[in-house]
Design a protein around this nucleic acid. Structure first.
Length: 595
RNA sequence: GGCUCCGUAGUACAAUGGAUAGUAUUUCAGAUUCCGAUUCUGAAGAUGCAGGUUCGAUUCCUGCCGGGGCUACCA
């Protein structure tokens, strides 16, 4: 049964019968811990139609609900707040329908489609901590929408062209001596990153040398030989020079192989990859069309601009004076291409750091001005930077935390803890490795996802892997312990079934509390989707685990003499484990059955 | 300078305009005849400042202070 629906219906009936009209949205919220009840109706806004004081309004509705709703047994009024006590029988009924629904938390297809872009790295260096937040966020938002019945297309655009990759190519040509991932044993993306660093080192040295010979800084920066080589390579690449393209393909190939294994370990996936080398020429026609339509304008030098001063923004260039594209041009083209590739999507979510907020504001405005209705449904999933206890990550100071290294450290730490605790003595080495992977990555993902995406956050590796506190492993542990209980119940031959659940007529407060939370799961999924915030689900999972631990601590399970109650508590534990697992799943986190 | 986001216990995070601002960690004091104590209970501790709107403001508005980001014919 849908408790909230029934309750709202009864409240509206009450208002109609008592006051002759209803409000558009009655304000129903969870009751504060200190008062009796589970649902609270906020009655201040109702006084306009009730023509009574908040207390009188609340009391009148409360009395009506007790006599007419069939689900409310008691109520109390504190100021304008009407706290409602739902009958235990009703809670058992609510629980039963959740228990009976094997697909609880996974809604059937709603026929709607959405695209989520995330990751989208440059191909000149390996992924770092910031990319981890990006990937986990994008993946999780996609999973949340999927759980709600959407068809979600996960994509990314790979920035595989441009001066940045030519820099790595130039350095490799000069100093590589034919080094490959195979010959060196270095992961492909790290190898290319190594030459990017190598480029930078030499470039700085050469610039300095030229300046010492009396060349002004600006000129030296342009004339450093290694930079000239990179620029030459970019020009050759654009002219489709065979050798340059071949080298470019080879080095990008190394990067993709490296990224591939990183994504695999992260547990993220993509339905389709867009490559900038394929899309960077798109968008120009669209801009010219917009120019004809008068959406854009041309300056005397021939460059094409959009004027957004009327929208509180600036003027923005879309085509350079020489007719070439800028980044924005390409993004316009890519957006349109994606809607052609996936005609049924109603919008796109772009998971990109908050330093690009202005860019996306402009992009969406341009799409709107060009007359694309889906522009309204595009969302920039903007997220803040990740800081470390040691401070800010800065590439110049070499304090960037590498994604592969960090994942490995987390897994190593998880393995160390697992072995020390020695609760998995019967496990094989392979099982221990697998478990460490689950815990280490779970710790990392949970910590990065539990914070509101748009906020800048601090990642504390040590805190994240603790098994007590607001962490992934705490939830994983709770799940594992429930699994132990269920194993024991099975061994004892205790098998709950739907029919017998209704024999339970009274619930403990801790049970009621947890059923309330579970019953709220779909609401939380909707809230998380609406706000594009996996943090909502992360906090839900944590609260649920904590709620179950209170039950676990205060209520005996196997010492219960009443067979119906014992079965109910086993079923109850099963449902909690299931919902923990599902809520962690949409975060991309797995939960072990033993740890 | 302009635009924008953020300022909540020592620390890290919560709070569709609603009740005495929650949680974790830390510190202190307790709890397990039973299921995995990696647990649970209790105590201590916070809304940057000044106004405004409201029955009611951490939330909305204005100003100030502090921090991040953007502000390229870069990506």
């Amino acid at each position: 049964m849908d408790l909230e629906f029934e309750l709202r219906k009864s409240i509206r009936n009450a208002m109609t019968d008592l006051f002759g009209q209803v409000t558009a949205t009655e304000q129903l919220q969870p009751t504060n811990q200190e008062f009796e009840g589970s649902h609270t109706l906020v009655c201040f806004p109702l006084t306009k139609i009730s023509k009574k004081s908040p207390e009188q309004t609340a009391t009148a509705i409360g009395e009506y609900l007790v006599s007419n709703s069939g689900i409310v047994t008691r109520f109390n009024v504190v100021k304008g707040f009407l706290n409602l006590v739902i009958a235990d029988q009703v809670w058992v009924e609510v629980f039963k329908s959740i228990y009976a629904d094997k697909n609880f938390g996974l809604l059937p297809s709603n026929g709607r489609e959405l695209m989520v872009e995330y990751s989208s790295p440059n191909t000149n260096k390996p992924l770092h901590l910031g990319h981890l937040r990006n990937n986990f966020l994008g993946y999780s938002v996609a999973e949340i929408y999927q759980a709600l019945g959407y068809t979600v297309h996960k994509v990314q655009i790979i920035n595989d062209r441009g001066i940045h990759i030519c820099k790595s190519m130039a350095a490799w040509t000069l100093f590589g001596n034919g080094e490959t991932p195979q010959s060196s044993g270095i992961k492909g993306d790290h190898l290319v990153g190594k030459y990017y660093v190598e480029f930078d080192k030499n470039y700085k040295a050469q610039t300095k040398e030229l300046m010492e010979k009396g060349m002004p800084e600006a000129e030296a920066e342009k004339k450093a030989p290694i930079m000239l080589l990179a620029i030459e390579m970019l020009q050759k690449w654009e002219a489709k020079d065979a050798g340059t393209v071949q080298l470019w393909k080879t080095m990008n190939g190394w990067v993709y192989e490296g990224f591939g294994s990183t994504y695999k370990r992260m547990g993220v996936d993509f339905e389709k990859l867009y490559y900038e080398s394929d899309t960077y020429l798109l968008g120009k026609d669209e801009v010219l069309r917009g120019l004809e339509q008068g959406v854009f304008f041309k300056k005397e030098d021939g460059s094409v601009w959009v004027d957004l001063t009327g929208d509180g923004l600036d003027q923005k260039v879309l085509l350079r004076a020489d007719g070439t594209s800028v980044y924005m041009t390409q993004d316009i083209g890519t957006a349109i291409l994606r809607f052609k590739d996936f005609p049924k999507i109603e919008g796109q979510v772009y998971t990109v750091g908050n330093e690009q907020e202005y860019h996306f504001k402009v992009l969406f405005l341009i799409m709107k001005k060009l007359g694309y209705p889906w522009a309204e449904k595009c969302y920039h999933l903007s997220y803040g930077m990740v800081d470390l206890p040691t401070g800010k990550m800065k590439s110049r100071e070499g304090t960037v935390v590498d994604a592969d290294d960090l994942m490995q450290e987390m897994v190593d730490e998880a393995e160390k803890q697992t072995r020390e605790l020695g609760k998995i003595e019967d496990a094989t080495e392979a099982q221990i490795k697998e478990l460490s992977e689950i815990i280490g990555l779970g710790a990392l993902k949970f910590f990065l996802l539990k914070v509101d995406p748009k906020k800048r956050m601090l990642f504390d590796p040590n805190e994240s892997i603790q098994l007590q506190g607001h962490t992934g492993p705490f939830i994983q542990y709770t799940h594992a312990r429930i699994c132990a209980i269920i194993r024991k119940a099975e061994a004892m031959g205790v098998k709950p079934n739907e029919g017998e659940l209704m024999q339970v007529t009274a619930l403990e407060p801790a049970e009621l509390e947890v059923i309330f939370m579970i019953n709220n799961y779909i609401n939380k999924l909707n809230e998380a989707a609406r706000d594009y915030s996996p943090a909502v689900i992360a906090n839900f999972a944590f609260d649920l685990a904590k709620g179950y631990n209170q039950f676990y601590q205060t209520i005996p399970i196997f010492n219960e003499s009443d067979a119906a109650k014992l079965k109910f508590r086993i079923a109850f534990s099963q449902v909690v484990a299931d919902v923990l697992k599902k809520s962690m799943r949409v975060l991309g986190i797995n939960v072990p059955e033993k740890m």
